[in-house]
Structure formats: structure tokens, C-alpha cells
Design a protein around this nucleic acid. Structure first.
Lengths: 123, 123
DNA sequence: ACTTGACTTAGAGCGTACTCTAACACGCAT
DNA sequence: ATGCGTGTTAGAGTACGCTCTAAGTCAAGT
């Protein structure tokens, strides 16, 4: 298969049709064509784009920043350095986030261990 | 030092006084005493509690779940198993989240590498 | 011909976690 | 005594990212 209806995309990506249309309205998805009755159909390229957008969202990039990235993409290949810079900045934020979460997780595990110790003594 | 005013707590924890009062209103913080003019003062125990709550929030535990955890705490030491279970469930969610973020980060890094490759060839 | 189901739109509504406002109170320094 | 800084409250407002509603269109199956 190489073109998808909105429900197919939803199944594959785990997003809802509502969210896919919302992304399009917010200009995260460009040039989604329509069939004769006005229904969207998506290509493999759209699918790859949605998957990439999902990776950005899963790492908490805001819709606004993704929009900015896509807008640069739309402006042509001379914006590559700017787009790369957005991604690199984001990479650093994500690494920082991973460290934060790991250190919070350590704290939570310590607490769990204290529960385990106290329940061993006095269960 | 061993007691803190709201602004001290804010400085130490990185939260705002507004947020500290909000946490108290939401019953995440219990029994914050007041001085003669009605101003809150916090103990080391409160500080430790806020730090722990911040670790839970940093790992995206909802205010509602934290409230539930604190409510169990308030109900006495026989709720320890239930509290531990909340933390263990959360630990698994956080581990899952870390895996998700790492795999999204890999995808983002691949994209960055493609930008780097293309800018090496055609800068 | 009619129902069903999948789609369309603009725009409203929602959940979460803050974040701020407005009006007021207190204690200390000028 | 007056102003300033820091605190108090209830409740309103905000930002974000969806999520849903209502009314309608279309194509295919019975």
C-alpha cells in the first residue's frame, strides 16, 4: 500500500483523525491532497513526516517550534542549517530532560527501597 | 537554618510561592504552620516533601496521583504497601517513558546526521 | 430510494497545571 | 505615621494540546 486514508494513518501512527487534521491546520503537515469527494489521502512521505513529528512531540517539542521547523522546510533547502540548529538545540534539551528524569527516578527508587526495608522488618 | 518562609522555599526548590500555596491547597503539602501574623513557615521535613513532590512531577506523575499518595500517607503507616505500589507503578511508567524518549531521540539524531551529511557535500 | 459509514468543516470545549489578580494585613524603617 | 516589602486569600485567567460537536457531503450496499 502507498496511500492512506485518515483512518489508516490514525491506525498506523496511533494519533486520531482529529489530531491529524489539527496538525494539518497548524501547518505541521503540508499539501495533503484530496480525492474526488474531498477526502484526504496521505502518501508514504506524509507518513514519515507524521512519524517524525510524533518523535518531536514525544520529546516535548512544542507545536509552535515544530511549526517553525516545518515553515523553514517549506522555504527551501537553504534553510537546512536553521532547521539543523533547531534539532540540535532540541537534542540538548532532550538530553537534559533525560538526566533530570533519571535523577528523579533515583530519588523515587530510594523511597521504594525504604518502603521495602520497612516492610521487611515490620510487614 | 531550619525553618523557611515561602520565598526561601521558592528559592531553594525553584518553585514559586504561588505554586507552593497551590500544592498546599491541593493537599500535597500538609500541616504548614503559620507565625503570629499568619505567614507560613516550612520545616526541613516540608522541604524534603517538596523535593520529593518535585521529583514526582518531574517524572510526570499527575497532581491527582500525588494527592492520592499523600492522602494514603495521612491515613497512617498501614497504607505503606499501597503507597509503595503507587511508586512502583510509577517507576515502570517512567522507565517506559525513558525508553520512548530515547528511541525518539535516536530518530532525531538520524535526521541531524542527514543534515550534517548533506551540508558537508553541499554547504 | 435509502441507510450506513467514513469523511468534511468551523469552531467550541476540555483537562492539566499552573499563574496571576485584587484587595487586604502585618511589621519594620524613615 | 507612612510607606515598603512580604505575606495572605478566593477566585479568575492562561497556555497548551488536543478532543469533540454539529451539521453536512459522498459513495457504496441492500
Amino acid at each position: 500500500m502507498s496511500v492512506y486514508k485518515v483512518a489508516n494513518m490514525a491506525d498506523i501512527t496511533g494519533l486520531t483523525p482529529h489530531t491529524l487534521r489539527y496538525y494539518e491546520k497548524e501547518l505541521l503537515l503540508l499539501d495533503v491532497p484530496r480525492d474526488s469527494s474531498g477526502h484526504r489521502y496521505y502518501s508514504e512521505d506524509h507518513l514519515a513526516a507524521v512519524k517524525f513529528i510524533s518523535a518531536l512531540r514525544a520529546t516535548n517539542m512544542s507545536i509552535g517550534t515544530i511549526k517553525e521547523y516545518i515553515s523553514l522546510y517549506r522555504q527551501g533547502s537553504n534553510t537546512s542549517p536553521a532547521r539543523m540548529s533547531i534539532l540540535k538545540d532540541h537534542e540538548h534539551l532532550v538530553m537534559k530532560h533525560l538526566e533530570d528524569v533519571k535523577s528523579s527516578l533515583k530519588m523515587i527508587r530510594k523511597k521504594i527501597q525504604r518502603y521495602e526495608a520497612s516492610l521487611r522488618v515490620m510487614p
